[in-house]
Design a protein around this nucleic acid. Structure first.
Lengths: 119, 119
DNA sequence: CTAACGTATGAATATATATTCATTTGTTTG
DNA sequence: CAAACAAATGAATATATATTCATACGTTAG
């Protein structure tokens, strides 16, 4: 149940529209987290990484080779993906082998694919 | 059916891993469009706009008032959302009234909300 | 122990992005 | 027609972002 926020300032047009819209607003924290999450998916390199890791695990250098980018760039992005718990890793000798941590996010990726293919 | 791409350069480790991963790669154009789409959702202001427009239509200045930002900022973002066919508009006198164009994208928004709430 | 390898990281750079400000356009009203 | 209002726009600014380069760290092999 949300609190009803009342307009402090009257708008020129339909006051109610703004009041209702304001009352329906999501909490700022939700907005921020939502945007943050989509922003992570909003980068080609990160999508490539996540997609490359679906159904298989890969070390950093194989990821770089697969995607066709420098090791450093991949490593930087993995750091970010790790921070958001989208990938996890295990060490094996010198290698660090990454895999998906959050399978849930794949649902979003697939839905996104559906979307771009149906329009 | 996708063509199988064969590694030109042998990697030091498991050659097959890279070959398979490469073969499974999405086309670059799909990647770009996916990232583009998520990037649009990856901004708090745009999420606020899209959310404010769910179930109601609003003119630019009411949107600005609702969201608590300048008219110009909102207008710039609407331009972008319009470009990606996420919002549409109709003119009524001096006002330009925006509404959602692509209901499909709301599914993504909701899924995103689910995601941040279940983790 | 030293060299080689895989990875991580910080700094630097280039680029993209969002917002503000000032101004313009278009419409309505007095 | 002039004034008022809503919206759009371009330029400027501030900020965020991705990538590269150089280097450091940790592990393994010789």
């Amino acid at each position: 149940m949300e609190d009803i926020i009342v307009c402090e300032k009257n708008c020129n047009h339909d006051e109610k529209a703004v009041c209702i819209a304001k009352a329906a607003m999501l909490p700022e924290s939700d907005i921020q987290r939502l945007a943050e999450m989509f922003k992570i998916l909003g980068d080609p390199t990160r999508i490539k990484i996540l997609h490359a890791l679906t159904g298989r695990e890969l070390c950093v250098c194989d990821l770089a080779e697969t995607i066709g980018m420098g090791q450093s760039a991949i490593s930087h992005q993995l750091r970010m993906l790790k921070g958001y718990r989208l990938v996890k890793y295990r060490k094996e000798g010198k290698e660090v082998i990454y895999s998906l941590d959050d399978a849930h996010i794949l649902g979003l990726l697939c839905m996104g694919l559906d979307h771009i293919n149906h329009s």
